[in-house]
Design a protein around this nucleic acid. Structure first.
Lengths: 138, 138
DNA sequence: GTAACTGCAAAATATTTGCATCCTT
DNA sequence: AAGGATGCAAATATTTTGCAGTTAC
């Protein structure tokens, strides 16, 4: 597990620091999307709030994580699984938010459909967020 | 135009006040989604920031407006056109964000497709936000 | 007249920036 | 050793709450 994490950092030309390792590890462990708050409280060692902000921003720039737009406009971050290169994030999967337990997750196996727009509009990216009840809660 | 606005307020059992009329009018005029900031700066008479917050919240509760989840997690509000009753907001249309001019709009004429989720998940609502270039910018 | 709404002050929360110090390479 | 990352302090921005005065009905 650990080596995988350092690899990700190396591959993105980021120096390997404690906070980055721990935060990235948390993403790998949880498997779901995390809010800033989840990150601050999900790690034993306390890192400065500012460090968390900057780390998330760095990960975003490198395409390691991405934000998920949720219906209530809470900011959540999730690992980019696949073909995200620096600056060019591209999701093709659906995001899910559970109305009961609040978990937010990427459904990698569910693809977003192609949607035809009226004449004149050009699609660059389609985001789909489905809210409902997850396996555990339904 | 004006009478239409007062009607909406009446229908929702809200007392008719200046701020509510002006803010609602702004939504009708703009035809697109508005951020809190757009509302504060889009009205000549200056209403207190707190009043704007509370008015938006009231409109949300009554189902007059709804929030749109945008890719950058900015909070935007738009009129509910159709079958939204108090507490039960239900969109069936797609939201569009222009990457150039930044406009956010509801594409009433584009319906969200039905998406099958893996066994165990239950869908309650599907939100679709497409970013790209609008008629004017493409 | 009464209940509801507004504006002001201030608290609570969230995010960003500058800078000195420390750590990775 | 040098550049980048962190932590602290503080500046900004955002949202919420309490309360007194005002307005709609």
């Amino acid at each position: 597990m650990k080596p995988q994490i350092e690899e990700v950092l190396k591959k993105n030309q980021l120096s390997i620091t404690d906070s980055r390792k721990k935060i990235l590890e948390l993403f790998f462990q949880s498997g779901s999307a995390l809010a800033h708050h989840d990150i601050e409280s999900g790690i034993n060692e306390k890192y400065d709030r500012v460090t968390v902000y900057r780390t998330l921003q760095t990960f975003m720039e490198k395409g390691i994580i991405h934000t998920i737009p949720t219906p209530d406009n809470a900011v959540k971050y999730a690992l980019c699984k696949d073909n995200c290169e620096q600056g060019h994030h591209h999701d093709d999967h659906v995001h899910f938010v559970c109305l009961k337990c609040g978990i937010t997750a990427c459904l990698e196996e569910v693809h977003v459909p192609e949607i035809k727009l009226p004449r004149g509009y050009k699609t660059r990216q389609t985001e789909v967020v489905i809210s409902g009840f997850c396996k555990a809660c339904s």
